[in-house]
């Protein structure tokens, strides 16, 4: 009974847990985070040459997603789901766009593990930022899914 109630209760609390530096330049902080070793070590496949261009979605991830979903995309057990291989990031991009713009609350199950918490909507992100960050998580943390096109984000957001 309790479980059913829990499942029915969506968005009682609107916002939670995903770091938002909304409307701030936050560059100094993002830079500081970016220089941390765990972030660098995420991807073993990336070329080590300094000329290698960083994925544009990585900065968005560090700024808005990292605190909860963690530098390695591992999430936090019981609270925030992982974004690693086998997680939801390979789902239909339209659903992923909705999770970012509308948030997601309540109980979810990923890879057989239960997570109970809430992600506040990240509606402040631009269409391009959403496409970038989705493309980034779909190509890092052991994932190799197709990038998400900005046109698709526009389409989902306009409800067409």
């Amino acid at each position: 009974m309790n479980r059913i109630i829990k499942q029915l209760i969506f968005s009682v609390v609107s916002g939670v847990f995903v770091i938002s530096y909304m409307n701030s330049n936050g560059n100094e902080k993002a830079e500081a985070v970016r220089s941390e070793p765990p972030v660098k070590e995420i991807s073993g496949n990336r070329p080590a040459e300094p000329a290698a261009k960083e994925h544009p979605g990585k900065a968005v991830y560090i700024k808005y997603c990292l605190v909860c979903h963690q530098a390695s995309g591992s999430g936090v057990p019981g609270m925030f789901p992982p974004l690693k291989k086998g997680s939801w990031v390979g789902k239909d991009p339209k659903e992923l766009v909705l999770i970012i713009t509308k948030g997601l609350s309540g109980k979810v199950e990923v890879n057989g593990e239960v997570y109970k918490s809430a992600m506040p909507p990240q509606a402040q992100l631009t269409d391009k930022e959403i496409a970038d960050v989705l493309s980034y998580v779909r190509s890092d943390f052991g994932n190799s899914f197709k990038p998400v096109d900005v046109e698709l984000v526009k389409k989902v957001r306009s409800g067409k």
Binding site: G15, V16, S24
Partner: peptide, 14 residues
């Protein structure tokens, strides 16, 4: 408390 700091929009900057 179902909240971080009882903001109008929980866990939202500003």
């Amino acid at each position: 408390a179902p909240s971080n700091a009882c903001q109008v929009q929980d866990r939202t900057k500003g």
